[in-house]
């Protein structure tokens, strides 16, 4: 699936739910389905700053593509990072670095988080972009 197709898929998925609680149920499921993140990778340098809960993010490059892995001690946050990973894992650095991450606004995620959490989301996006632009 191309980046655009994947984004479209998520926008459609989100539009199925009218209620925010249902969207959270969906994010919680996404969080639960995230692949286990090794304990030894939960280091200070992989911690994303600016979140109320702790979020770790790691990236690996294989065959010119970036693959992300992540974890959080809060499940909704984990669902959000899982969502971002499902969109941006397996893309080239260039694809990620030049993307505008606008689909996040389209699913209304940022607007529906409190300012501290919205900052957390912005930090996650910035970290993903940074990893694409500069590597670790």
């Amino acid at each position: 699936m191309t980046l655009e197709e994947k984004k479209q898929e998520i926008i459609e998925e989100f539009s199925l739910y009218d209620e925010w609680l249902d969207k959270y149920e969906y994010l919680i499921e996404l969080g639960k389905s995230l692949e286990p993140f090794p304990e030894e990778k939960k280091t200070e340098d992989r911690l994303i700053k600016g979140c109320q809960s702790r979020v770790w993010l790691d990236a690996e490059e294989r065959d010119g593509m970036l693959y992300f892995s992540a974890d959080s001690d809060a499940i909704i946050t984990k669902g959000i990072i899982s969502l971002l990973i499902s969109v941006y894992s397996g893309r080239t650095r260039e694809e990620i670095a030049t993307d505008d991450f606008g689909f996040v606004a389209e699913i209304g995620l940022k607007e529906n988080l409190s300012p501290t959490r919205a900052n957390g989301l912005v930090s996650m996006i910035d970290t993903i972009k940074n990893l694409a632009e500069n590597g670790r």
Binding site: W20, Q52, S114
Partner: peptide
Amino acid sequence: HHEDLALILDK
């Protein structure tokens, strides 16, 4: 997690 609880309660 307290953050998850607060987020859901808010909604």
